[in-house]
Design a protein around this nucleic acid. Structure first.
Lengths: 212, 212
DNA sequence: CTAAAAATGGGTTGTCCAATCCAAAAATCG
DNA sequence: CGATTTTTGGATTGGACAACCCATTTTTAG
C-alpha cells in the first residue's frame, strides 16, 4: 500500500534516472554479497559513487530501496534465463537449463545463493512488505518454468500437472541453491535438480513410450 | 579456533547451567521468530528472564551465543524427528515423515521456515564460522535421512544411490520450507516433498514381502 | 561455618547507522 | 537568457545496540 517506489515514472531527468539506477544496482550487488542488514546505506552510497543524501532523494527510506532491489533482481533472474526459458519445453532444454545454473554457481564460487531467495529468507519474518515482493518474484519465476512444462503437456508429451511440477522444480532449485551456498560446493544443486528433472522425465511419454 | 562455547564442561553449577540453557532457548526462539539480526541481546535477556550482563557471563559475545543456538536447533530438529527417523526405512515411513512436517508447518502458520536453514541463509555470506556450524547441522540431518534409505538399499528394496537421494530429499525439504515460509501456505512444501518421494518410490523394487 | 568461586544486577560507554537539514550546483524549459 | 525544478554535497542528529565494568548476592566446597 505505502512505501512504493516513488517517481518511477518520467518525473526524473535522464541524469537523475541514471543515478537512481546506479543506486539500485549497487544496492543489489551489496545485498547479494553481504545480505540486507549488513549492507549499509553508506556502503551503497560509496559503491554507487554518489554522495550525501542522494539515496534519500530517490528513495523514501531503506525499505523503499530494498523493494526496488527485489524487483530489480527478479527482472535480472528472469532476464538471464529468458534465452533458456524459450527452450524449456523439452527434457533437453530442461537439462541445459540445469547445466547453466550449475555452471553459474561454479563461476560464483557458490557464493550468494539465489538473489531472490536469499533476500526472502532474511526478510520473511520481519518485513511483510518485502516478503510479499519476494513472493511475487517467485510467482513470476514459477510461471516461467510452468510455461515450458505446459507446452510439453499440451503436446501430449507430459503426463502430470504442470503447475505442481513447476512448483516442485522451483523448490528443488531453491533448496539446492541454499545447500550449495552453505556447503560451498555445487553438488547439492546438481543432485537436487537432477532428481527433480528425473522425476519430470518419468512423467514424459516419448512417442511410443508409455509409463510403467 | 576461537569463540568456542566456553565452559560447556562442569565448570558451571547446576543453577548456572540452567540459566545458560534458558538463555540459549530464549535466543533460539527469538532468532526463529525474527532472524539473527533482529533478535537483540536485550530481547534475549528479557525473554530468558535474566538481567544485566548475564549473557556475557555465559558467552563471550553474540557470536558465541549464535553458535550455541545453531547447535541447539540442530539437536532440536534431529530430536523432534528421531521417533520418525527410526521408521524412515520404508515408503510408508517416508510418507508419514512428510505428513508430520507439513502438519508442523500448518500449526506454525507457515512461519519461521527451517530453524537451521533460515539461520544459514542469513549468515552464509557474512559469518564463516556460523556458516560452517550450519553446514555441520545439515550434514547430520542428511546422514539421518540417509540411514533410512541405506537400510532400504541394503534390503534390496531401493535402487539408486542413498547418498544422492538423501541429499535430494533434504534439498527438496529446504526449498519447500523456504517457499512455504514466503508464501505462507503449505502447498509448496507438500508438492516438493511429494515429488521427491515419488522419485524415491520410482526407484524402489517391491519385493515379495508385503509385510506391514 | 567460612572462604573462595560463581552468579546476578544494573548502569555505562562507544560505535554504527538510518534518517534529516540546509544549502549549492546543474539541468530543464519558457 | 532567466526562472524554476531537479540534482548533488556535506554535515549533523538521534537512537539502537553490542560490549564492558564493578559491586552485591548466592552457591559451593573444605
Amino acid at each position: 500500500m505505502t512505501t512504493s517506489t516513488q517517481s518511477s515514472s518520467g518525473r526524473l531527468t535522464r541524469k537523475g534516472e541514471a543515478t537512481r539506477q546506479r543506486i539500485v544496482a549497487a544496492a543489489a550487488q551489496l545485498i547479494y554479497e553481504r545480505g540486507v542488514t549488513e549492507a549499509t546505506l553508506e556502503d551503497v552510497r560509496a559503491a554507487a559513487g554518489v554522495s550525501g543524501s542522494q539515496i534519500y532523494h530517490y528513495f523514501a527510506d531503506k525499505q523503499a530501496l530494498l523493494l526496488a532491489v527485489i524487483e530489480y533482481q527478479t527482472e535480472a533472474v528472469l532476464g538471464l534465463q529468458e534465452p533458456l526459458f524459450g527452450r524449456m519445453d523439452s527434457m533437453e532444454g530442461l537439462r541445459r537449463w540445469r547445466d547453466a545454473l550449475v555452471e553459474y554457481q561454479r563461476r560464483m564460487q557458490c557464493r550468494g545463493g539465489c538473489p531472490i531467495g536469499s533476500i526472502g529468507g532474511e526478510v520473511a519474518e520481519n518485513n511483510p512488505e518485502a516478503r510479499l515482493a519476494v513472493a511475487s518474484g517467485f510467482l513470476r519465476w514459477e510461471a516461467a518454468i510452468r510455461a515450458g512444462l505446459s507446452a510439453m503437456h499440451a503436446r501430449g508429451e507430459l503426463d502430470g500437472d504442470p503447475e505442481d511440477l513447476a512448483l516442485a522444480v522451483l523448490a528443488a532449485l531453491q533448496g539446492g541453491l541454499l545447500l550449495t551456498q552453505i556447503q560451498r560446493e555445487t553438488r547439492p544443486l546438481e543432485i537436487a535438480l537432477d532428481a527433480i528433472l528425473d522425476h519430470v522425465e518419468s512423467r514424459t511419454r516419448r512417442a511410443g513410450t508409455t509409463e510403467d
